[in-house]
Write a protein that binds this DNA or RNA. Structure first.
Length: 642
DNA sequence: CTAGGGTTAG
């Protein structure tokens, strides 16, 4: 029916195609004298990427009058084309067809928003007597993966695949493995993996990535060690698994191993490693990756994901200037990139800059999302900008149509609580439209501790403990609230109850990087090779600090020991103190000491570090769970507000 | 058509 001589010219998508499309769309405009009839290749092109200038209405009229729809192949192209631009019209065309072919059915299956209706469409296809092909099943599986459907629909699809006897095709099996992995059904995925007589690299990689995403790095590593050959994707999946699980050191080690083995990392792997560096505060490693990217011309300027990872790494490693440099070099940023930058500024206590970023983002025409507001509210919190924060919280729904979530109420409570407005903060949490979760009460609790509000603190503390009786941190917090009010018996009692319930608190640990190697310290750690030197340094430091009036602040300490002296010893060996002593011994004068801590800095360590920066004339940058503290000449960038 | 990547939450 159609002339086919154009087909040869149009085979691969090329610049020629573009110009053909333009001329086609001009020709398609009304009136359509019938001198140009779109043939198969042109329809194929159009259905893949319809040109913005294409006159779809004219095209539709043309398809009706020309009898093009009688040709099943052309019909499928037309349906696909209209599914993109005008779905309801596409459905109408579909229903007018007498015998849609598999491709048309598949296109319709693909167009459904969720797996459930895709599957329903598939059954209609069977009823109509149309035979599905492999692509049909791939689509169904894909719908399950993307639509986050429930396991029942997924198993229905699996059942159909078995019934049709196509489960042995590698493509199909791999899709299924991937589907189960994405739904968190690792056992089902593994069963398919184990049953398969033939496995390819993709099967292995799917399985490893599945375990990695589910947090089971041990199983992932077992497969990783076992597999016959590894590709970049295998390494990437494994490294990412460790990063997700929090095994940053392990991830870096694996990355190193990979490099030693002669593999050249690509952008994806570098992004995972950068994430690990960010968490660890491994600035040297992160910087090394930045240089690697530039040397190999991997072009971070045009890769938003990579530049976001770089920005986040620099920000989390304390180099907000470098983060800004990368940010300014990016060609076109998206919301996530801006969020990372705003979050970075917030962490550094640069509230005003964060707000300006926020306005700038709006000017760029980007739409702020939930994360943006979490970061902006955090920025206000860290900078103590209470009124600003309130305004922004109110504007969320009003001006941006973003409904505040639990997190946002938590941020608001944190903002108010940290500023001393504890009662108001409590009202925010009690009156929020959804059920508060422990973390929201936790924000309040922290405020009670800093502002010594025993009344509210006791009430919330007890509630929190009943909610999460196994989280030792809750008892510690309440105990500290009591201690802050000199209610020693109550503080001790909390400690006793905690022991009785067998609750464990998170162990404090700190990281410090030296010559590209990350060192880890926990409270009272004696495992480091330089242990003796570090402890000697610590006692020397304490002597020096006492000369300028340092006195331990034991008020916030969990009453772990009977007498003051022991309490003091435990306090002297908080992990960040060990890390700082290590830094003083090993780092050259003039380079700032950067420490990353997993918990919040305690009052004593904060005062201590301020003095160390003065007496030893060094800059110390500590990143705690919440934000950065930059200690210089006896002062901290947080202005003692944290 | 099937495998690895970025921001947030006390």
């Amino acid at each position: 029916m159609q002339s086919t001589h154009v087909r040869n010219i149009l085979k691969p998508p090329s610049p020629i195609l573009q110009s053909t499309l333009v001329s086609f769309s001009t020709l398609c405009g009304p009136p359509l004298p019938g001198k140009f009839i779109p043939n198969h290749p042109i329809l194929a092109v159009l259905s893949k990427s319809s040109h913005p200038q294409t006159d779809l209405r004219a095209l539709h009229a043309h398809t009706v009058t020309s009898g093009l729809l009688l040709d099943p192949f052309a019909a499928s192209r037309i349906v696909q084309l209209f599914l993109k631009s005008d779905p309801s019209l596409a459905r109408a065309i579909f229903h007018s067809l007498h015998h849609p072919d598999v491709y048309t059915w598949n296109a319709m299956i693909m167009a459904h928003p969720d797996a459930h209706s895709s599957v329903a469409h598939y059954f209609r296809m069977l009823q109509a007597g149309a035979p599905p092909n492999n692509y049909t099943f791939a689509l169904l599986v894909k719908a399950c993966v993307e639509g986050r459907t429930d396991i029942l629909v997924a198993m229905k699809v699996h059942g159909q695949i078995l019934k049709r006897g196509v489960e042995d095709l590698l493509v199909v099996r791999n899709s299924l493995i991937n589907m189960y992995c994405n739904m968190g059904c690792l056992k089902e995925a593994r069963a398919l993996f184990d049953l398969s007589s033939r496995l390819d690299l993709i099967s292995w990689n799917s399985m490893i990535s599945g375990y990695g995403k589910a947090g089971d790095v041990v199983s992932a590593r077992d497969l990783f060690e076992e597999m016959p050959e590894r590709s970049l994707v295998s390494w990437g999946a494994m490294i990412d698994g460790y990063v997700r699980k929090g095994g940053f050191l392990e991830a870096l080690k694996l990355f190193n191993e990979m490099m030693v083995g002669g593999m050249k990392p690509d952008v994806v792997i570098l992004v995972s490693v950068l994430k690990g560096c960010a968490q660890l505060g491994a600035l040297d490693q992160g910087r090394w990756i930045h240089i690697y990217v530039e040397k190999n011309r991997l072009g971070w300027e045009r890769n938003v994901v990579l530049s976001t990872a770089l920005i986040d790494m620099y920000a989390k490693c304390g180099c907000i200037d470098h983060a800004l440099e990368v940010f300014n070099g990016v060609g076109e940023g998206d919301v996530v990139l801006w969020n990372a930058m705003i979050g970075g500024l917030a962490m550094h206590g640069l509230g005003q800059d964060a707000l300006e970023m926020f306005w700038g983002m709006k000017r760029k025409g980007l739409v702020p999302n939930e994360t943006t507001f979490v970061n902006v509210l955090c920025a206000c919190t860290h900078a103590g900008m209470v009124e600003r924060g309130r305004e922004i919280f109110c504007s969320m729904k009003k001006d941006y149509g973003v409904e505040p979530q639990r997190e946002h109420y938590g941020c608001l409570a944190d903002l108010l609580g940290r500023a001393g407005l504890v009662r108001e903060a409590e009202e925010v949490i009690t009156n929020m439209p959804m059920e508060p979760q422990p973390s929201q009460w936790g924000a309040l609790m922290a405020a009670c501790r800093t502002h010594n509000n025993v009344k509210v603190g006791e009430r919330i503390g007890k509630r929190l403990i009943s909610l999460e009786p196994h989280d030792g941190g809750r008892y510690v917090l309440l105990s500290n609230v009591y201690a802050g009010a000199s209610r020693w018996e109550d503080a001790l009692e909390m400690r006793r109850v905690m022991e009785e319930k067998g609750a464990k608190k998170e162990r404090g640990c700190s990281f410090i990087e030296c010559n590209g190697v990350v060192h880890e310290f926990s409270v009272g750690d004696k495992s480091h090779p330089q242990c003796r030197g570090i402890y000697e340094k610590l006692s020397e430091m304490e002597r020096e600090l006492k000369k300028v009036g340092y006195a331990q602040d034991t008020s916030q300490m969990l009453v772990e020991m009977g007498d003051e002296e022991d309490k003091g010893i435990a306090l002297s060996y908080h992990s960040e103190k060990l890390a700082i002593a290590f830094g003083i011994i090993n780092m050259g004068q003039g380079t700032p000491i950067r420490v990353v801590k997993n918990l919040r800095v305690c009052r004593d360590c904060h005062a201590y570090t301020k003095l160390v920066s003065k007496v030893y004339k060094i800059e110390i940058v500590v990143r705690d769970r919440n934000r950065f503290h930059r200690f210089r000449d006896g002062l901290c960038s947080c202005m003692d507000y944290w």
